[in-house]
């Protein structure tokens, strides 16, 4: 069958089924289960109103439970078991975790993830803040913002291709087609570098890709926050003779501290799960392994579900503090 036609049909079924559920479920509730007529009309309407929220919520609760809550429990279980060759599982205690702790690749992934965790949120937030502050003051600022924001729309894989061309290296003596090596040679470098294979530093070349993508996000949010600062505070500082740097660091930044924290944590969560960029650019070679890619290796290449699940749990544990903090914030807001 023509793929386009197939796509259209499958789309119609998927979306139609969804609309059908809500429409029919309401119809049945109102017309069959608790009809708003007859002797019990009052009781029926009350009953329908009690049932309806759950009717509206059911698909969401079902999907959330099945696709996010259940996997957490199941992953904990898998991380504590061994898979037996014929099928079935045996209790393994913490041996998967112990095995993982003894693998140098795991510690390499941990170290790199920590590096990512420190560098990427800090750099993206700093660049974002800089871009937000600078573009807010000039006439073509919104155009500049659009262009800095644009990488947000590009997939990690697309970004990987884009940056591989930047980092491309040709043998010494021939013309460089990667712009980084071209600049490096023009500045007097001796031989073209294979940037992605230089241990330790190659991590930073991978991080640049994510910083490049996330700066726009930070900029958009911080720029809105900067615009929300009351003018009086800035005016007062100017009257007191503060210079632009003092105004920025002493007046503006403290007032948007909460927003900075939100941006920082949002990027932190993203960094903890970073997979595509490493997978597409180095696949964890040359000491660039990260947790998510380590996990993918274990699950789908080594087929070791126990250790794979254990490493997924490590990611979950690292996310946990942010999760708790978010929930507490949300609850405080609702009161």
């Amino acid at each position: 069958m023509n793929p386009a036609l197939q796509a259209v049909i499958t789309i119609a079924i998927g979306v139609g089924g969804c609309i059908g559920y809500f429409y029919l479920a309401n119809l049945i509730l109102d017309k069959v289960l608790c009809p708003a007529r007859g002797p019990n009309i009052g009781r029926n309407i009350n009953r329908a109103n009690m049932i309806r929220p759950w009717l509206f919520l059911f698909p969401a609760i079902f999907a959330l439970g099945l696709y996010l809550a259940y996997p957490v429990v199941e992953t904990i279980r898998l991380s504590l078991t061994h898979r037996l060759p014929g099928g079935g599982y045996e209790w393994a205690g913490l041996s998967n975790y112990r095995q993982m702790m003894h693998e140098p690749k795991f510690w390499e992934a941990m170290r790199n993830n920590m590096l990512w965790l420190i560098v990427v949120p800090a750099a993206a937030t700093a660049f974002g803040l800089l871009a937000a502050q600078l573009t807010d003051r000039i006439r073509w600022g919104s155009l500049a913002k659009s262009l800095i924001f644009m990488p947000m729309a590009i997939s990690f894989v697309g970004a990987a291709v884009i940056w591989k061309l930047v980092y491309d290296a040709r043998p010494a003596g021939s013309e460089q087609i990667g712009i980084l090596n071209a600049v490096y040679m023009a500045l007097g470098g001796d031989t073209p570098q294979q940037w992605l294979t230089v241990p330790f530093w190659n991590n930073f070349f991978l991080m640049i890709v994510l910083i490049w993508i996330q700066t726009g996000f930070a900029m958009v949010i911080l720029s809105a926050a900067l615009r929300g600062i009351p003018d009086e505070t800035v005016e007062a500082a100017i009257v007191d003779g503060a210079n632009p740097f003092q105004i920025f660091f002493r007046i503006k930044v403290p007032q948007i501290r909460n927003t900075i924290v939100v941006v920082w944590t949002t990027i932190t969560i993203l960094v903890l799960k970073i997979f595509d960029i490493v997978f597409a650019m180095t696949n964890g070679q040359w000491e660039t392994q990260v947790l998510a890619n380590y996990m993918y290796d274990k699950l789908f290449r080594a087929n070791d579900w126990g250790v794979g699940s254990a490493s997924a749990m490590v990611i979950m544990i690292l996310v946990l503090p942010i999760l708790v903090w978010n929930v507490r914030n949300a609850r405080r807001e609702m009161r």
């Binding site: 992953t75 998510a292 997924a312």
Partner: peptide, 11 residues
């Protein structure tokens, strides 16, 4: 914020 990595194998 639950990482979707957790969901891969169980699902």
């Amino acid at each position: 914020v639950v990482p979707l990595q957790l969901a891969l194998i169980p699902l």
